[in-house]
Amino acid sequence: MIALLQAEWFKLRKSKMVPIILAGPMIGLFIGLSANLEDNMQGIEINEWYISLFSMNLTYALLFLPLISGVFTSIICRYEHQSGGWKQLLALPVTRGKVFVAKYILIMLLVLAMQILYLGSIFAVGIVKGYTDSFPMEIVWKSIVGGWVATLPLVALQLWLSIMFKSFAAPFAVNVIFTLPSILAVNSERIGPYYPWAQPFSMMYIGGNTDDVFFVPWEQVLTVVGGGFILFFLGGYYYFQRKSI
C-alpha cells in the first residue's frame, strides 16, 4: 500500500499540479486583501480575523474548494487514461481496491495541503492588514478541517466519474453542474443542509453554531457528509472492481 502511494505521488508530482494547488489559496488571499468589510462592520463586536474570512470563504469554499478537488481527481486519473496506464498498472501485482484507495488518499492529502495553504492566506491577510486581535484557533479546527471533511464525499464521486470517463472534461462538467447550484442552496434553509456540494461552505462558515465540533450540527455531518461519502466511495470502489480494462 505504501509502495503504491509512493508510486502515485511520484506520477502526480511530475504532472504540474503545483499551480492548481496554489490557485485557490491565492484567490482567497487577493479577495481577503481587496475586501473592505472592516469599514461596514465598525461598531460590531467581532474578532477582526473573522471579517476578512467572510469574504474569503465565500468564493473559496463555495467554488474553488469543490472545483479544484475535482480537478485533482481528474489529473490523478488522466495519465492512466492517456496511454494505457490502467492496463499496465493493473497487470502489476496490485489489487484494484488498493489502487482506488491509494488514489483517494492522495487526493485527500492534496486537498488538506490546499486547506493548509488557505490557512496561510488567512494569516497573511491578517498580517498585512495589521490585525491586533488574537488569532482564533477555532478557525483552524472548525473551518479548515471542517472544509476538508466536507470534500470527502465530493472527491469520492469525482474519483468514480474520473475512472469512468476517459475525457478530462466530463467529470469536471458534472462537478460544475453540481457545484454552481450550491450558491443558491446555501441561501435555502431547507435544501442547504442536505446538499452535499454546499457542505464545504457550510462547514467553513464561521457564523454557524459554535457549540458543536464543527460549524454545522453533528447529525448533518454524519448524515449528509458521512452518508454521501459511503455511498459515493462504495459506488466508485465497486465500479472499479468490475470495470473491464
Binding site: A3, F10, Y79, Q82, S83, G84
Partner: peptide
C-alpha cells in the same frame, strides 16, 4: 498488452521508476 502503455508526462527512466516502486 496491445499498444505500449506509458505515462507521457514522464521520462523513460521515470516511467520505469513509477513501476519499480510498486514492484519493489
Amino acid at each position: 498488452v496491445e499498444n505500449p502503455s506509458y505515462y507521457p508526462h514522464l521520462t523513460a527512466y521515470e516511467n520505469l521508476e513509477a513501476l519499480r516502486k510498486i514492484l519493489g
